[in-house]
Design a protein around this nucleic acid. Structure first.
Length: 351
DNA sequence: CTCCAGGGTT
DNA sequence: AACCCTGGAG
């Protein structure tokens, strides 16, 4: 594995050094996110925050803005909290033990093992989606890998196989092998350095591994959102609560349609509940579809005229009246970014 | 369009 | 076991 890694190791921005800050930042970004997606975000982050102290000193909104589009925004909030703990309570030094790392928000068993082994040379295993795939094929595992008992078995396997020498490189080699060779769909077994030891290869079952139970079908919701303008042409936007879906991100206010109400009724209700305002709902401006982990939405964005009631942050963290140009200063999720793109296209057409 | 990839928290 | 996002492949 190590010989293969030495020959095939990819040059990645976070592999330029073993600086624990950069290893940590890259590992958080790489959670549930693929290498190519992470690259530009990592480079922007280290340019904006060259040290854990710089990150700790930044306002959360600035961190969320740099995270915009990367998804799983609780990672950004935990990253910020962890930076403040490291900078203020640990003298700027990252823990070098598994236990110390696990105590930081956003770090679980995988990330602790990755940081400890890569940045500090500790003999600690990792088990991510890539490693699960490699091992489940090596031993031709027929058990459902989403089950806790199977995961425990795979962690034991990762621990047993881990060499004393260069554990960080070995872990990265396993993950790199899973990413580039032992790929999910069409594994490149001809190029695999461990194919002689692979039971699935011997039996021709690579494509059936790993075994995962089928996912339940996801519900579909209709959401109404208001593009609310005042007489000066400014737009009313709201910041979502810090916990939960898209926590801390901004949005065009609105919410889920309930049984028996029209989208227009839904929008007026949501705006009363969240902001205590009355609006006149106008034309449907655009419709956007978006999928999440466990449900999908169709977002209906309506032109609205602000009528009355000074906005109050009841069901939202904050609100702001902004010009269309200022929208880029705020962090939005993907669906609302599509609405903003449609707004920009409309403006470009009118000019 | 649907399906799938990818860890941590509660 | 439910919850949390986006990008790419087919």
């Amino acid at each position: 594995m190590l010989a293969w890694y030495d020959a095939h190791r990819a040059e990645l921005p976070w592999r330029a050094s073993r600086d624990p800050y950069r290893v940590w930042l890259s590992e958080i970004m790489l959670q549930q996110t693929q290498v190519e997606t992470v690259k530009p975000y990592f480079l922007r982050f280290v340019a904006a925050f060259p040290s854990v102290e710089a990150l700790a000193a930044a306002p959360l909104d600035e961190v969320l803005k740099l995270w915009e589009g990367l998804g799983y925004y609780s990672r950004a909030r935990n990253l910020h909290r962890a930076a403040q703990i490291v900078a203020r309570e640990l003298g700027g030094r990252f823990p070098d033990s598994i236990e110390g790392l696990l105590a930081l928000p956003g770090i679980g068993r995988y990330t602790a093992g990755a940081i400890a082994s890569i940045a500090f040379g500790v003999r600690a295993p990792v088990l991510d989606g890539n490693v699960i795939r490699v091992f489940s094929r090596l031993i031709d595992l027929e058990d459902d890998v989403t089950q806790a008992a199977t995961q425990a078995q795979l962690w034991r396997l990762a621990e047993e196989r881990l060499p004393d020498e260069r554990p960080g490189d070995y872990n990265q080699a396993l993950m790199e092998l899973g990413r580039l060779v032992c790929r999910p769909r069409e594994p490149l077994c001809a190029q695999c350095p461990v194919r002689e030891h692979c039971l699935a290869f011997a039996r021709g079952t690579q494509r059936q591994r790993p075994v995962k139970k089928a996912k339940a079908t996801t519900p579909h919701y209709h959401v109404a959102a208001g593009i609310i303008r005042d007489d000066a042409g400014r737009l009313l936007i709201a910041q979502r609560p810090l916990d939960g879906l898209l926590g801390g991100l901004w949005e065009f206010p609105g919410g889920k349609q309930e049984d028996g109400e029209t989208l227009q009724e839904c929008l007026r209700r949501e705006l009363r509940e969240e902001l205590a305002i009355e609006v006149e709902v106008g034309e449907l401006f655009t419709v956007v579809r978006h999928g999440f982990t466990h449900f999908k939405i169709t977002l209906h964005a309506f032109e609205c005229r602000y009528v009355s009631g000074p906005p109050q942050a009841i069901g939202v963290r904050a609100f702001a009246w902004v010009t269309p140009e200022q929208l880029s200063d705020y962090s939005f999720g993907k669906a609302d970014r599509q609405v903003i793109a449609a707004l920009a296209a409309r403006r470009a057409m009118l000019l």
